[in-house]
Design a protein around this nucleic acid. Structure first.
Length: 103
DNA sequence: TTCCTGACTTTAC
DNA sequence: AGTAAAGCCAGGA
């Protein structure tokens, strides 16, 4: 496990329930704002929610989800976030205005 | 070593 | 406002 991945996981794990974050935000927090793509790649390799990495709380900068690449599909991700109290906009995006996690 | 690709982001048309 | 292209870093062929 590369240190980069471990740091990315640590940040994602720190995301409080009912809150979401973006790849770029996380990448910037771990000191690698140019590696936003690798953050997403880390999520792809993440052990999953059971492993302590709620990758479903990580969304695009505009609040949209990964189309077709999510752990179990965008629908499952939306359902999980809604279960945590995250509101969704009519356009299918997360309400970043009030649910975007800020360190 | 060069080219291609990717759970991203930003800028331009 | 919506769509298209470029930029970015790292790894694989």
């Amino acid at each position: 496990m590369d240190n980069f991945f471990q740091r990315a996981f640590s940040v994602v794990k720190q995301i409080p329930k009912g809150r979401v974050s973006t790849y770029g935000q996380i990448a910037h927090m771990i000191g690698e704002p140019r590696k936003a793509r690798y953050v997403g790649f880390a999520m792809h390799q993440s052990p999953g929610v059971a492993g302590g990495v709620p990758c479903h709380r990580v969304v695009f900068k505009d609040g949209s989800l990964a189309p077709g690449f999510a752990f179990g599909g965008p629908d499952a991700q939306r359902e999980l976030l809604e279960a945590e109290g995250v509101r969704f906009l009519e356009n299918g995006k997360v309400d970043m205005k009030h649910f975007l996690w800020e360190a």
